[in-house]
Design a protein around this nucleic acid. Structure first.
Lengths: 145, 145
DNA sequence: TACAAATATATTGTGCACAATTTAATTTTG
DNA sequence: CAAAATTAAATTGTGCACAATATATTTGTA
């Protein structure tokens, strides 16, 4: 039996997994200054673009379910960065809205992308290329077969 | 203040994070047949190449620490796939060794890479290119500045 | 208009990740 | 050689991810 394909360095999965954790780790010291975790930062990135969203919309954008988002959003609420208010039009829906503190945090976060870039040992072009390849990969897997 | 860079789709981090979770999710049904989680599968990939390794060596290859590995390895031991034996030469070291059942599982896993490839909507060439880009990225970040 | 199906969120439980600390063993050094 | 420093693994605690299930609300339909 040929087990060559089972070698760690033949896998796509492992470098993807390792690179993702590596990048998250590079963010950690920067996000620590804002007392945010990486997934919390992702939620705020969405909210800084659109001040108020539903849990469902957040889940669609970040590919996360309520089992992940509900406790995470409760922690953001405890930090007074968002409010969680059940919609009056549809009581199933919970609207997540930035507080003033949540909006204000965007200014502190503004320098993160540049700081991150200087941590990455890649040229702008390489970053863009890798990002676009990954985005294309993701798009190809969002359509149902 | 220009907040363009803080948009979710401008980040490298998010597609990396999402793609990693997507691929792990594609493995899940395949690994479920072997009653393995994805990180457990990674540990076995290492052990199928080298029957016995220390926890430290595993951590270096997978970029994981003992806080992650110790409980994971205990679970693999409970499944009788590995043994955890403290080295007699250096009592600090724990050797992780495949059991016969652990070795035998390799045969069941042999078809996973091909099955995974057919799940991925990428050509072989694209997979290789993406893998090599990520591996290069990882290598550039393993050397100390 | 009841009632079945669908939808949105929450809850529960398992297994990572990872920081921080602890414990025990080994190595280095004064 | 003994104290200090280093090393390897384990432990503790927090926060994701995600499957499975539960709850409550809304929508579709007979």
């Amino acid at each position: 039996m040929n087990m060559e394909q089972l070698k760690l360095d033949q896998q796509l999965c492992f470098p993807l997994y390792a690179a993702s954790r590596l990048v998250t780790g590079l963010y950690r010291p920067l996000l620590e200054e804002l007392s945010l975790t990486y997934p919390q930062y992702l939620v705020l990135l969405v909210l800084w673009e659109k001040e108020s969203v539903t849990v469902k919309e957040l889940g669609e954008q970040l590919w996360l379910d309520s089992g992940t988002l509900t406790p995470l959003l409760k922690r953001l609420q405890e930090k007074a960065l968002v409010t969680r208010i059940r919609s009056s039009h549809d009581e199933r829906v919970v609207n997540i809205t930035l507080t003033e503190a949540g909006k204000a945090l965007q200014e502190q976060a503004a320098s993160i992308p540049d700081q991150m870039f200087s941590c990455l040992r890649l040229e702008r072009e390489q970053v863009t290329q890798l990002r676009e390849q990954l985005q294309q990969f993701l798009v190809q897997h969002t359509q149902v077969s």
